[in-house]
Design a protein around this nucleic acid. Structure first.
Lengths: 214, 214
DNA sequence: AGACTAAACGGACTGCGGTCCGGTTATATT
DNA sequence: AATATAACCGGACCGCAGTCCGTTTAGTCT
């Protein structure tokens, strides 16, 4: 008998919370597991649509999907992980737009125009998906280190460099990015009634001064 | 008998969470209540000092102070309220500095210098008290509407106006303020090893471009 | 087909923040 | 001093996120 029973795919590297990234599993996944993942994502979307993201509790989700609570955590690691999985489609679409899409958001326009346009696009995106995005903000510690956030930050940094900003573009990108955080934008709109247009207009003002003023 | 038994001081207005503001109660407070408030604040400071803000749970605090859990919530309304009470001293001191203190942080210096200086001061403050401040961020909904945050925002807005910024100073103050949020600053320092000096330097860059570029 | 093993499963359990309500006590009135 | 009452007190209780571990099942190897 073989002492080392070669498993083919198996879950990815570490111990827990495999890859709450996108849709289908990284490699092969046991069929019951795959079925349950779909069941859960589907039920989660239903709950969010019916009652909002705040109403999505892990117990309720498990019950609705007809699985045990442990299964939910096995698949998604945490509530935040589940939210990320729900968001991954929208996030990928947005990334695609600023990386490969048509100008001025995508490549091909002058850097300042791109900064202005991508900010406006981000504002719209946040106003549409911000509730989920807020719920997907994990444990404060990795909130800025999750892949989409890193990509977004790098992109802002790159645009700043291209626009001729030489003074600490990395940190300036962080500062600029902070202005577009869901927390702040949602608060401005929902509590103070600021219009999305005004947000975009002021963003334009901010980045224009940033880039031009140096 | 008097149908309207006149209470003298009584708790402040509404129903719950009296005034977690500063030290002694707004007006007179029953002596046992006052004693318990001091007991609780004292025990809370001890726990934070020993084990950090995250280790401060309401049960543990109640037990340590030798009171019931209900008493803790009666006094401070919520965990966030308790944290605000712990912070109120440091917050008041900081407010005093930028409102009445010596220039360039306080009044008397040119607006741009004040913006630069107050940002640097804020950075130091956040690096010292940020952990508490983060724990004091209440329910996302009123995070920006709590008095110290409002005052801080107004101050930034005023400095922008004085510096000649005419385009939407209110929202620009929000955007600038976002760059100094504890969440972001602590992450920069703790995860990416950015030095406080570099934060202050880049803040200077940001506001200089903001004010000069228009 | 039958046996074997790693993975998936599910629900009881923990610790947390927050609420509630019956019992207790401080203070004003007589 | 006795009484009345409003505020205070405490801990049982709730719903939640997240963990643990005994049980079941899918996929593989003979």
């Amino acid at each position: 008998m073989s002492l080392i029973p070669i498993r083919r795919g198996a879950q990815s590297g570490g111990g827990r919370a495999a890859e709450h990234g996108a849709g289908p599993a990284a490699e092969s996944e046991r069929r019951d597991a795959a079925r349950n993942r779909e069941l859960l994502l589907c039920a989660a979307r239903e709950i969010v649509e019916e009652s909002g993201a705040d109403a999505l509790t892990m117990d309720r989700l498990a019950q609705r999907a007809g699985v045990g609570k442990g299964t939910v955590f096995r698949r998604f690691g945490s509530r935040a992980g589940l939210m990320m999985a729900l968001l991954s489609g929208a996030e990928a679409e947005f990334q695609g737009r600023f990386m490969f899409g048509p100008p001025p958001v995508g490549p091909g326009a002058p850097p300042l125009d791109r900064l202005v346009a991508v900010g406006a696009a981000r504002i719209s995106w946040v106003l549409e998906f911000g509730e989920l995005a807020r719920a997907a903000d994990a444990s404060v510690y990795n909130r800025f280190d999750v892949p989409p956030a890193v990509l977004w930050h790098r992109h802002l940094e790159m645009l700043l460099r291209e626009a001729g900003v030489t003074a600490d573009p990395w940190l300036l990108a962080s500062f600029l990015g902070a202005a577009l955080e869901p927390e702040l934008l949602l608060h401005s709109v929902q509590v103070h009634g600021i219009s999305p247009d005004r947000l975009a207009q002021t963003w334009r003002e901010l980045v224009t001064r940033m880039v031009g003023g140096g």
